[in-house]
């Protein structure tokens, strides 16, 4: 870890905002005392912990990020109905499969977000990632077409992430 050349009051602004909101949600209030205490914690905790963080690419585009989050929430609901139908239906009709998906994005944070999205949405669970972070192994509950699934994940989830993180 290199020493910091200058002192920043907010070394991790995103984390500060999340901490502040989480504190207010935890206490379920917007009373002035909790606003002050939350602001203090939101400044103090990142100052204490910023030295432990690995540098990650930041969120470049807020609007694209919000659109991505809304799309994922919608997809979670749709995928849940599909998985529910598959679970209730006869288990003999299922065609489980392992699929390796080539990754274009780099860095740990975008890959983690992609793997989490893949686990939550289209009937897939991310199982493992290759050592060089170029391939994502997923398990599919009911595979109909391998190329279609890879194209769906790359087109629908990976491309927006690539745009958001510029990598």
């Amino acid at each position: 870890m290199t020493t910091k050349p200058s002192f920043h009051l907010l070394p991790m602004p995103m984390h500060s905002v999340i901490l502040f909101i989480a504190w207010l949600l935890l206490n379920n209030t917007v009373a002035p005392g909790h606003l002050v205490l939350g602001a203090f914690l939101a400044i103090a905790i990142p100052l204490l912990t910023s030295g432990m963080q690995d540098p990650q690419p930041g969120f470049r585009k807020p609007i694209a990020t919000i659109r991505y989050v809304l799309m994922v929430i919608f997809d979670i609901i749709v995928a849940n109905f599909e998985v529910a139908v598959l679970v209730i239906g006869p288990a003999k009709k299922l065609q489980p499969a392992f699929v390796a998906i080539p990754l274009d994005i780099e860095h740990e944070l975008p890959i983690t977000i992609l793997a989490s999205t893949v686990s939550l949405t289209p009937g897939t669970v991310s199982a493992e990632i290759s050592e060089d972070k170029k391939w994502l192994y997923v398990h599919v509950l009911n595979l109909t077409n391998e190329e279609e699934l890879i194209a769906l994940i790359k087109h629908r989830y990976e491309r927006p992430l690539k745009e958001i993180f510029k990598c």
């Binding site: 979670i76 609901i77 995928a79 849940n80 998985v83 529910a84 679970v87 209730i88 288990a91 299922l94 489980p96 686990s119 939550l120 009937g123 669970v125 199982a127 398990h139 509950l141």
Partner: peptide, 29 residues
């Protein structure tokens, strides 16, 4: 009902990897 479907998937699906799908998706929703 979704919580029940997640647990139903855990109980009835044939192998571990397919069982993993029920709790992660249905139970979360």
């Amino acid at each position: 009902v979704f919580v029940l479907i997640g647990s139903l998937g855990l109980a009835k699906l044939p192998d571990f990897y397919t069982r993993l799908h029920g709790p992660t998706k249905a139970t979360t929703l």
